[in-house]
Amino acid sequence: MTAAQPLPTLEITALEKRFGETQVLRSIDLKVQNGELVFVIGPSGSGKSTMLRCCNRLEEPTSGAIHVNGKPMLGIPRKELDRMRLQVGMVFQGFFLYPHLSALKNVTLAQRKALGRSKAEAEARALEMLDKVGLKHKADAMPSELSGGQQQRVAIARALALDPKVMLFDEPTSALDPELVGSVLKVMRDLRELGMTMIVVSHEMHFAREAADRVVFMDGGVIVEEGPPEEIFGNPKSDRLKAFLSRVSGEAA
């Protein structure tokens, strides 16, 4: 950490977000390096999802800066924003596959319309990505015919097919039945092996311990503490983190 750092894949600088009078995020600074998996934990309402959603501007930050590979996400025209969003993949808690399109078409739509790939190229890429998430055989299935875990894996393939520089996961397993969580976590683990840069907001503490390079603990709209998982979970410094961990350890970790 002492040597000159390379350009971060994602850099959040002095990010603030207010909803009217309510301050949701306060002076958030976060750098995510290429290939890093950063895990964001914290109680509900701590602002972690809002921070994630600011990164691709599904939520409009009140002030601050966000850069992807050194290029600004804020203060750019919508056309440029659409192009920048291609570099930031997002996976939602609620999957949000397009219900009127097959799994394959879910994965090809943005490739064709936003990236301008040909039909053949987009389909080849989609099949490759569906294969990566273990669902190549479901390419023609409609979302209503897939389990929650399968839908989420198609959603991951949909984001990956656009060759993003960083993937944002917004509680990707929270809406899943417990027995389906594993299949989604496996895909995320594979992605990490392949060197994908990832920011994960999740309550899967086991997964954080095992897969995260760095864990960020948020509470009350600020980053309270961050460090390697063994530090955060093994040697928490702040009282707020200690309280949070003892609360969740009852259920999970």
Partner: peptide, 15 residues
């Protein structure tokens, strides 16, 4: 669901 709009926007589709 608002997520349908957001899923589209997040994949770089225009409005």
């Amino acid at each position: 669901p608002r997520g349908q709009w957001e899923a589209g926007a997040a994949t770089g589709l225009s409005f």
